[in-house]
Design a protein around this nucleic acid. Structure first.
Length: 277
DNA sequence: CGGGTTTGACCGGCGC
DNA sequence: GCGCCGGTCAAACCCG
């Protein structure tokens, strides 16, 4: 089969940068394109159609890669703001200001109901983007600070799903973290929304110069999915399902830093696990 | 003491 | 209508 998405990896191969660096480079470009945005801009029209259903998934195979992404992955995106506005976000003060109850319990209930209404009105979801990483830790460092606000058991999965929210009060980006039910080493991270602030963590000093003008598309990056997703790796439990893949791995070599970490998922392992089930 | 995590409860959506 | 499930809240707790 042909590689339908050669451009990104072509750029990559000639850049001498790590994948994360390339993504970060893009983030630093004048257009303020970041990791998330780069991914989201893939066929944006189609993505918008899908954004309220399932996120797209990118698969990274090594925690090192993830660690290396500790630069903004969910960057500022002014173009999204219009979308946010039509989400009908309710000003909290406005909502809460409808009268103060003396009774705490009633207050509590009222507040919960209001919140429920809020979430209801907020039904239009933010742009979501999911990717998979092979990592031992659930919560991967991505340069932003997150506060865990919930954890739920997931049906058809022995692993709970954790809910995180960006600690910046002005930023309503959320992310969900769960492990693949079929392989505990796979962490599925789903981002929702766009950060409205820069990453609190300093950029790495040796950030390389931009090396490509054309931002990689989601499809490009999904090249990394190639072996995992062929096998329908997410199983039934994960929430993330718009799996796509490319039959051919990008022409990666082990010579470019993190790239060596992007290894094809061992099909044999998957087969083993399927036999176990 | 402030910030983050845990955890049980609650709510809405959805399928039957 | 009912039950299941995902998502969220918030009090209690933990930790540096």
């Amino acid at each position: 089969m042909e590689d339908p998405f050669p451009s990104f990896w072509d750029h990559y191969a000639s850049s001498g940068c790590t994948l994360a660096e390339m993504l970060n480079c893009a983030d630093e470009k004048s257009n303020s394109l970041g990791f998330m945005e780069l991914l989201n801009m893939h066929d944006s029209a189609a993505f918008k159609e899908e954004e309220e259903e399932e996120p797209s998934i990118v698969y990274y195979s090594n925690s090192k890669l993830q660690e290396s992404l500790n630069a903004p992955q969910t960057p500022n995106c002014s173009s999204i703001s219009s979308e946010s506005s039509d989400r009908g976000v309710i000003n909290k003060e406005e909502e809460d200001g409808e009268g103060e109850e003396d009774d705490n319990d009633q207050k509590k209930k009222t507040s919960k109901q209001l919140k429920a209404k809020k979430t209801n009105q907020k039904k239009k979801r933010e742009q979501r983007f999911a990717f998979m990483t092979k990592s031992e830790v659930d919560h991967l460092e991505d340069g932003y600070r997150w506060r865990k606000y919930g954890q739920k058991a997931v049906k058809n999965s022995p692993f709970p799903r954790s809910y995180y929210r960006c600690t910046n009060p002005a930023c309503n980006v959320k992310k969900r973290v769960e492990r693949s039910c079929t392989d505990p080493t796979i962490v599925v991270t789903t981002y929702e929304g766009q950060h409205t602030h820069p990453s609190p963590q300093p950029q790495r000093p040796h950030a390389p110069p931009p090396v490509f003008s054309a931002a990689p598309s989601l499809a490009n990056i999904q090249l990394m999915n190639y072996s995992l997703l062929v096998n329908g790796y997410m199983g039934g439990g994960g929430g993330a399902q718009q799996l796509s893949f490319c039959s051919q791995p990008p022409a990666l070599t082990a010579s470019n830093g993190l790239l060596q970490d992007i290894v094809p998922w061992p099909a044999a392992k998957i087969e083993e696990e399927e036999e176990e089930q």
